Simulated scan of single mutants.
Amino acid sequence: MYSIGQLVKEFSVSRSTLLYYDKIGLLKPSGRSTANYRQYTQRDFDRMAQIATYKEAGLPLDSIAEILDSSNNEPSEILEKRLRHLNSEISRIRQQQQLIIRLLGKRSLLKTTKVMNKQQWVKILRASGMDDQAMRQWHIEFERDLPEVHSDFLESLGIDKKEIAEIKAFSQN
């Protein structure tokens, strides 16, 4: 049996977090000691480990409860939804980075932020010996193998949607 203190220490959560999980039914202790302290079994411990993993993945508590309490215990739909949300959020944040750099008007920030623009990327490709035909082939391969990642990468370079559409169109031909 595990005490609330042992779970607090093992999972780096607060006592009040565990009390809240108990209150909402996410993690109920399996028993009580003679002094009426909460006691957790190995099964409870394992459930808490799953909760911690799903929390680390950014899932809200109601989604975690849905996964853990479902009879088929199939988290893929919920996790795929979370992944789509993260992809969207990453894209939105990259666009904000590009906008802030443009608003500041300091191109020097491109060297100190985790942002690359189209000009920098083309410069790197040219420095590695790629001509226009080799770059076109690079786009064709990228589009064929990973079309969504290709789009995301082009967006991350600050390329507008019209130019991305043009690049993807010539990459598909």
Rank of each mutant, 00 (worst) to 15 (best):
T113K: 11
F153N: 05
S88Q: 11
M48E: 03
R43T: 10
M135W: 09
Q172Y: 07
I167R: 15
S151F: 12
L146C: 04
L26C: 08
H139S: 03
Q133V: 01
R47K: 15
P60L: 08
E89G: 01
L103H: 06
I90A: 07
L7E: 03
S128N: 13
R94F: 07
E66G: 01
K162F: 10
G58M: 11
E56F: 15
G129D: 09
Y40Q: 04
M135Y: 08
I78D: 03
E155Q: 11
F142T: 00
S71H: 10
W138D: 05
N72L: 14
R82Q: 15
L83E: 07
P60F: 07
E141W: 10
Q172M: 06
E166Y: 14
S70W: 03
L59F: 12
A127L: 11
I78R: 06
T112Q: 11
Q50K: 14
H150Q: 09
M1H: 11
E10H: 14
I159A: 02
D62L: 08
L154I: 00
I124R: 13
R136D: 06
G105L: 09
P147M: 07
E74L: 14
L18C: 04
V13C: 08
T41G: 06
Y54A: 00
E89V: 10
S91W: 06
N87W: 06
A65S: 11
F170L: 05
Q119F: 10
S30A: 10
L59D: 04
S16C: 00
I93E: 07
L19T: 00
Q96M: 12
G5C: 02
F11R: 04
M1L: 12
A134H: 04
E56R: 15
Q6D: 07
S76L: 14
M130R: 05
S3G: 01
E66T: 05
L146P: 00
M116A: 09
L103F: 05
S70D: 02
R43H: 13
Q97L: 08
Y21E: 01
T17M: 14
S156F: 14
Y20N: 10
Q120D: 11
Q6A: 08
E10Y: 13
I124M: 14
S88W: 11
S91G: 08
P29H: 06
T41A: 13
R32E: 03
T41H: 09
E155Y: 10
M1P: 04
L7P: 01
I140R: 14
G105M: 05
G158W: 10
R15G: 00
G25I: 03
N117Q: 06
S12A: 15
Y37Q: 04
F142C: 03
L99S: 04
E80K: 13
L154K: 01
